[in-house]
Amino acid sequence: MSERLKLSVGCHAKIPGVGTSYGYVPSLGAGIAFLVLFGLTMVVHTVQLCWKRTWWCAVFSIGALVEILGWAGRTWSAECPYNNTAFLMQISTLIMAPTFFTAGIYILLGRFIQILGPESSSIKPSLYLWIFCTCDIVSLVVQAIGGGMASGQAGKVGGNTKPGTDVMVAGIIFQLVSITVFVACAADFVRRTLRRRLLQSLNGSVVPLLGAMIFSVLCIYIRSIYRTIELLQGWSGYLITHEKYFIVLDGVMMVLAVAVFNVIHPGWFLPDHKRSGAAKRSDYGSEEAELSSVRGHE
């Protein structure tokens, strides 16, 4: 058994001249900081969804929990940089976590369409969740398979990580394409909404929540682009072997993507579907009354 394989079990401090699967020793400070940040947003999201009874927002809490598991793995690796279990723990969970955030965004856009009416979108609200969540799951499975293949080879002397890395790249590119299609659908929704002045029929403003949704998608999009370039460079590439890029373009982006909904929570800014529908029926009824009155005078 090689020295590298012996070190992959248990906890061993960094040995000069013996590389880690990361290409560096993960920062303990960064690991603790992100554990705290994702822990806070998870707790706040859980309180908010219980308080406002927006149960579908549980996907944000679950996503934050998965991020916590990933950063716990990186914190573990800061003390035990050769431990293979810690490495696999962080790579699998941090790939998976954004899927929960995008699921929440798909549901949110579907709620907007339900409230504003079918004329606000060319796709049925339920289809957003089915189509794009299916794409995310497919992407997730492909990335997980590729990650397992690559990490297994990374622990071997002279192991070939390229096949696994190529599979991971295929998965993340597929995810990037699906998010791009979703962004195009969301842009069409905004165009239809503004063009037909649908927001004026609502009590209060949903503009902050629309802005939060766009901001969150942008953060996830940046992260996907970074991950794609990172993996295209390979496991010994510049981006993957320099932690500062991972911290900013993955960790920070994901914190912002989920925490923005703590500040602008759907439970506060999303109009009640029943009240909106009643208001529309009331408006429709008043219009019918006016037409009947005109016809009577004629």
Rank of each mutant, 00 (worst) to 15 (best):
T85A: 14
G70H: 01
T93I: 08
G19S: 15
V59W: 05
A86Q: 05
H45A: 07
L40A: 15
N84C: 02
C57T: 14
L69K: 05
L40G: 03
F101C: 06
G110A: 12
Q90C: 09
F38E: 10
M42V: 02
T99I: 10
I15H: 07
A58Q: 11
L94D: 03
T46D: 02
L94T: 15
A72Q: 03
L37Q: 04
K52R: 15
P98I: 08
P26E: 06
V25K: 14
A33H: 03
F38M: 09
S61F: 05
A13Q: 14
V43L: 15
G29Y: 08
T20W: 09
P16K: 12
V47W: 15
V47Y: 13
V25Q: 12
I62S: 10
T93P: 00
V25W: 01
G63E: 06
G31D: 04
L69R: 07
E79M: 04
W51C: 09
A30S: 14
G23V: 10
L49T: 07
R53S: 13
T93W: 04
I68F: 02
T20R: 07
I91S: 14
A86F: 01
I95C: 14
W51E: 03
V47H: 06
S27F: 00
S77G: 14
L69P: 00
Y106I: 05
L65I: 07
Q90F: 00
I105E: 14
G104R: 05
I95W: 10
W51T: 11
H45C: 09
Q48E: 13
V44M: 11
M96D: 03
L37E: 07
G17R: 13
E79L: 03
A33T: 11
T54L: 13
A97N: 06
V18F: 13
F60Q: 04
S77Q: 03
N83V: 03
W71C: 02
W56Q: 04
M89I: 12
L37T: 04
V47I: 15
C57N: 14
L35K: 00
F87R: 05
I91P: 05
I107M: 15
S92V: 09
I68T: 13
F60M: 12
G31L: 02
K14S: 10
R53K: 15
E79F: 03
S27L: 00
T41M: 09
W76M: 01
A97R: 06
F34E: 07
I15N: 04
R74Q: 10
P81L: 12
G39D: 12
I95A: 13
Y82K: 07
G29W: 03
F34A: 08
P16R: 09
T99K: 01
W51L: 13
A13K: 14
I32V: 15
V66F: 03
C50L: 15
G17M: 11
L94H: 02
K14A: 15
F60D: 06
F87Q: 11
N84Q: 11
G104N: 08
V25L: 08
G31M: 02
V43P: 01
